[in-house]
């Protein structure tokens, strides 16, 4: 993970060094004299060669120093971690909405395949993955905030404020989760051991929750992890719509101000949390993978390999012809 993070820093470093504009002018304002600008550029190390700047940055990074914000003169780490909880909370709430709605509808859809419920929820999910989330957010503000006055339109101060943003992002995520859940469940439904379970006369509920769902969990968890990462990234857009003071907002402003240290720090923190979530998911596999579990509980082994579990929704195997 550390090499990947260094790579991320490098990528962002390269990109920002290509950016037009001069942070010194932005910081000192249009009235600064050329000498003052030059002095500041020296202070900021902007005149150093690219590699020197990169090595310096990484060196400081290893000491937990993300640099100093050009605009506020505050440590970047402090600025980011002031805002990080907000973004984390927002992304988590959205993911919870996405997980609950998505998994629930996915299961019911798979169980009641080709019924009206399945059809309607598949279409809604298709709409959900096709709709730009910021547009959905604006529509929600028009309907629920302006029209009905149920929820505030901006800010992030308490549960009342959390509803619209989490729903907006959560419902889009739910659509992805629903599609994945449905196809994973359908994939499992055709397995022999499910037929066996049914043949043994187990109740439908028990078949779904004890046999089908655990076996379908890996692709579902994978897609949830991806949604979390997308939510983190998407915060740069969604926080604009709802005026949420999170990392996304910080970064949008930083891009506009050529505030390189904040942009670098923000990308790094988002990439890092995304990687950590992926790591957690890998660990989670061990707990939810029936084959790994079966090693310890001595249950009958499933035929499939792990690689076959995780893939595009709908790419079911030939198990059922």
């Amino acid at each position: 993970m550390i090499p990947v993070m260094l790579g991320v820093v490098l990528v962002i470093f390269v990109m920002l060094s290509l950016s037009p504009g001069d942070p010194a002018v932005q910081m000192l304002g249009p009235d600064a004299t050329p000498e003052q600008l030059e002095e500041l550029r020296d202070d900021l190390g902007l005149n150093d060669p690219f590699l020197v700047r990169y090595v310096k940055y990484v060196w400081n990074l290893l000491h937990g120093d993300l640099g100093t914000s050009y605009t506020t003169k505050q440590p970047v780490a402090k600025e980011i971690f002031e805002r990080f909880p907000t973004t984390l909370l927002f992304t988590t709430l959205a993911c919870i909405v996405g997980a609950i709605v998505g998994i629930l509808f996915g299961i019911v859809s798979a169980v009641k395949q080709y019924t009206w419920f399945d059809n309607v929820s598949r279409v809604i999910a298709l709409i959900g993955i096709s709709v730009p989330s910021f547009w959905l957010g604006l529509m929600f503000i028009i309907w629920f905030s302006v029209g009905l006055g149920w929820f505030p339109s901006s800010g992030f101060y308490g549960p009342k404020y959390w509803v619209l943003p989490s729903l907006t992002v959560g419902l889009v995520q739910a659509s992805n989760v629903m599609r994945q859940t449905r196809s994973a469940m359908l994939d499992v439904v055709r397995q022999d051991y499910i037929r066996t379970a049914r043949a043994k006369g187990q109740s439908e509920m028990k078949v779904i929750f004890s046999h089908e769902l655990p076996n379908a969990l890996i692709p579902i968890v994978t897609v949830l992890g991806m949604q979390f990462g997308r939510g983190m990234g998407g915060s740069i857009i969604s926080e604009q719509v709802f005026a949420i003071p999170g990392i996304g907002m910080l970064m949008t402003n930083a891009i506009g101000n050529l505030n390189y240290p904040v942009v670098q720090g923000g990308v790094l923190v988002i990439a890092l949390s995304f990687s950590i979530v992926n790591l957690l998911i890998d660990i989670l596999y061990a707990f939810i993978d029936p084959r790994i579990k079966s090693l310890y509980s001595g249950k009958k082994r499933v035929r499939k390999t792990k690689n076959e579990f995780v893939r595009e929704p709908g790419k079911e195997s030939a198990a059922n012809g």
């Binding site: 950016s19 037009p20 504009g21 001069d22 942070p23 002018v25 932005q26 249009p30 600064a32 891009i255 506009g256 101000n257 050529l258």
Partner: peptide, 12 residues
């Protein structure tokens, strides 16, 4: 342009 870019270009 980004605000900062325009400011820079203008002042130069």
């Amino acid at each position: 342009l980004e605000n900062a870019t325009l400011t820079t270009n203008n002042s130069k």
